[in-house]
């Protein structure tokens, strides 16, 4: 067994969950990731996550695992010299600091690339390296708010929803960009800057909605939340409450394939001529079918439906809280993955 990035030295100058996790991915796959920590605050804005005393710092062990830590004082000449020596040795630098902070420590790309032209300099910002908002703080909530999805995720009349998914997209995007640049460097020896932003990441996570809006360019269904009782396909992307209040979700875009089995499970005649074609189900009699599903799913508890879906290997599930999903929802296959055994 080897490590994919075993010859790669990464300097980790990050403070946010998203970017720190990005560097952790590089460490997980064998990069020597050296976290730079400073003994004197370099800026008032330097709000490092305060460790919670006496309890497991689960967050740190997720986002800083497999890393090394070097603590130095950049206020001293020798401390700054050490920074230069470290940058000279590094293959990659990953940061989420503001431009001005980086420049103050001569850790901006222009300074770093003078010392080490082959370095891959990965930076994540709030809104990207260009444009009027390039210096806004890198806060995922602000980026998410700009992405257009928050107003339409919930039910009509409900507050906008922040999911936090954008920050996770950003972690992987930055790592992807860095390794892509490393591959280019393998071929050519050339270093460069890699940029991602929380805004870009949130937009990427919303790809299908955003692209559809760009192309279709109108439609209340993109601007206002769609009630779960008005979904475009009653058998896909839909939610129905079961008898005990647990939610059933169906993902059967290809309704022809699933209709007979689902109809039977719900006590509906598959040949019922209101619903016996895809078009009837998804267009002509869509609302009628939604209401019928709504009524039928409430006749049995979630556990019943889960059993039905499992038996028929249907693309549907009963939504658990995390708590329940960990104990019995996760397929055995996935559990072994989540618990890590395939990786040892």
């Amino acid at each position: 067994m080897s490590n994919a990035l075993e010859d790669v030295i990464v300097l980790d100058l990050t403070r946010d969950f998203s970017t720190s996790l990005s560097a952790a991915f590089l460490a997980d796959f064998g990069g020597r990731v050296i976290r730079l920590e400073f003994l004197t605050a370099v800026d008032q804005a330097d709000h490092q996550l305060a460790p919670t005393k006496g309890t497991w710092d689960f967050e740190a062990d997720l986002i800083h695992r497999n890393k090394q830590s070097v603590a130095l004082d950049p206020a001293t000449d020798k401390g700054r010299e050490l920074l230069v020596e470290l940058t000279a040795k590094a293959d990659v630098l990953v940061t989420d600091w503001m431009m001005a902070e980086l420049a103050a420590l001569s850790l901006d790309y222009a300074s770093v690339s003078r010392i080490n032209p082959e370095i891959i300099y990965g930076r994540s910002s709030g809104f990207g390296p260009k444009g009027p908002d390039k210096d806004l703080p890198a806060i995922d909530e602000l980026a998410s708010a700009r992405t257009g999805m928050m107003p339409i995720l919930g039910q009509p009349g409900e507050p906008p929803v922040y999911t936090g998914a954008g920050a996770m997209h950003n972690s992987v995007m930055l790592a992807f960009g860095v390794v892509t640049a490393l591959i280019h460097r393998q071929a050519t020896g050339e270093g460069q800057e890699v940029d991602t932003s929380l805004f870009a990441a949130n937009m990427y996570g919303a790809s299908l909605d955003i692209q559809a809006f760009l192309a279709i360019g109108e439609g209340d269904r993109f601007i206002h939340p769609i009630s779960r009782l008005d979904v475009s396909n009653p058998m896909s992307g839909s939610l129905y409450p079961s008898k005990d209040g647990r939610w059933v979700t169906l993902t059967m875009p290809d309704t022809d394939r699933w209709w007979p089995g689902l109809a039977q499970a719900l006590g509906i005649d598959p040949e019922d001529d209101r619903f016996n074609t895809h078009d009837k189900r998804c267009e002509e009699n869509r609302l009628e079918l939604i209401h019928l599903f709504e009524e039928r799913f409430q006749t049995q508890p979630g556990s019943h439906w889960r059993q039905v879906f499992d038996e028929k290997q249907m693309s549907a599930d009963v939504i658990g809280r995390i708590a329940t999903s960990w104990s019995w929802t996760i397929p055995a296959s996935a559990r072994s993955r989540a618990w890590g055994s395939p990786f040892s």
């Binding site: 995720l153 999911t163 919303a206 992307g237 939610l239 939610w247 979700t249 995390i322 999903s325």
Partner: peptide
């Protein structure tokens, strides 16, 4: 649905929230 990502979103009592088409 099964990772629990949906169930924690939304106001209490509201249906779970899908993170967006294809997210």
């Amino acid at each position: 649905a099964i990772t629990g990502a949906m169930a924690r979103l939304g106001e209490p009592g509201q249906p779970p929230i899908y993170l967006g088409m294809g997210s």
